[in-house]
Amino acid sequence: MLLNQLSNALDRAFGADVPKRIGVAVSGGGDSMALLDLLRQWGRAEVAVVSVNHGLRPEASDELALVAAYAAQHGLTHEVLQWTWHGVGNLQNAARDARRQAIVAWAKDHGLHHVALGHTQDDQAETFLMRLSRGSGVDGLACMSPVRERDGLTWLRPVLEVTRADLRKHLRENDIHWAEDPSNEDTRFDRVKARQMFETLAPLGLTVERLTQAAAHMRRQQDVLQWAERQIGALFEQDAVGDMVANRVAFDAAPEALRSKALVAALCEVSGQSYPPRYRPLLAAIKSKTPSPLHGCLILPSEKQLRVTREWAAVRDENTPVGAVWDRRWRLDCQAETPAASLKIKALGQEGLAKIPNWRDTGHARQSLWATPAVWQGDTLIAAPLAGLTEGWTAQLLRT
C-alpha cells in the first residue's frame, strides 16, 4: 500500500523521465528511515543517502549510525555532512538553512538533480496550523508542495500524503530500527505545540486529514493567484542598484491579494530571505504613505512608484574582503590594478554618501545608495561604483 502511494507520487513527479539516481536526506528518524526503505524497494532509481549532523545533541551520532548501518546492509552510498552553529540568530532557522545549503552542495558535487525528503501528512497539518496561528494568507497556508524547484535542485516529498503512524507501522513490519528525536516532545517549539493540539481539535473535525485537505485547497487557490499575476505582468522590476520598483498606479489598481504577493516577492528578492514577513506589518506597509522598514528592507512609497530597497541597518555590519560576495548578492571588482589586501567591502552609509558630491547624478534615492556596497580602507572611502564614485571599480548584481 505505502509502496504504491510512493510510486504514484514519483510517477506524478517524474512522468516518463525517471532519473538514474536520486538523493534522499535521512536523519535516522522514523519518517526519513521509512522513506529510505520505500525508495530502495521502489528500485527504479539508484539511491544516494545523505545525513546532516548539526552537532547539537550527543545522540545524533548514534542516530546517524542507524542510517549508516542500513545503507551498508543494502549496499547504498551514505555521506554525513557536518555543521556547527555559531550562536547567531534563530537556531531552528539557522539549522534548517544550513541543512538545505549543505545538501545542495552535496547533490551538485555528486551530479544529483533530485533529493527526496521525508515530510508527511502530519508535517503538512502541523505547518498549516502554525501558519494559521500567524495569520498567513493563501501562500502560507498552501504549505508544502510534493515537488519544488529550488537552488538548482528538484526537491521531492513522495510521502507527503502518508501519515507518520503508517510509516512507523511499515518500519515495525520490516524490522527496521529508527530513532526518536527528544526535541519532538519539547514544547518550547511551536511545531510540538501544534502536534499536541490535534487531540484537542479532533472532536471539532479539525483532524490531520481535514487540515491537509484545507492546505490542498489553498494550494489550488495559490495556482489561481499565480496565474492572475502572470496575466497582469510583473508589478516590480529590478533597477541598477538592486531595488525592486513598481509603478504606483499599476500597483494600486491590482487586487489586494496580488499587491501583497508581489510585495512579498520583492522583499524576498532584495533581502535574500526565503520566508515572507508577517501579514499584519506587510499590510501596514502597503497602506503606509511614509517609508516602512520591513524584512531587512525599506519600502519607499511615492505618488509615481513603490520602491523596495535594502535597509542600511540590515547591512551596516556586513564586512567582506574584496572578491567575496557582499550581502549575498554583490561582487565588486577593480579593473585598474590588483587591490590592496587591506581594502574591505562595506555599506556606503550616510557618511560615505556625504563624501560623494555628485551622487544625485546617478538618479538613485539616497536611502537606496546608503545600503549599496563600497570599498573602504579603514575609515577612508575608496570607491562606491553604484553611487558614482567608480575609481576603476565595478559592481555586479549576482542574485536576480
Rank of each mutant, 00 (worst) to 15 (best):
L348Y: 12
L369R: 05
G388P: 04
A371Y: 03
L381R: 05
T372H: 07
S368D: 09
A371M: 12
L381D: 10
I382D: 06
W370G: 04
L369G: 04
A347H: 06
G388T: 14
Q350Y: 10
A374Y: 05
V375S: 08
T380L: 13
P373E: 08
A371R: 02
R366D: 15
L381F: 11
G388A: 15
A365L: 10
V375K: 02
A365Y: 09
R366N: 09
V375M: 05
A387M: 03
L369Q: 05
W359S: 04
P357I: 02
Q377G: 10
P373H: 12
E351S: 09
E351P: 12
R366K: 12
A347C: 12
T380V: 11
Q377N: 15
R366E: 14
W370A: 05
I382A: 15
W376L: 00
G378S: 13
D361Q: 09
N358H: 14
G388E: 07
W370I: 04
N358L: 11
Q367F: 14
Q367C: 06
A387R: 00
L369A: 05
T362A: 02
T372E: 09
W359Q: 01
P357V: 04
R360E: 02
W359M: 01
A374Q: 05
T362Q: 01
P357A: 09
A384H: 02
A374L: 02
V375W: 01
L386R: 00
L353S: 10
T380E: 15
A374S: 14
A383D: 15
I356D: 05
K346Q: 14
N358Y: 06
R360H: 00
L353D: 03
Q377E: 15
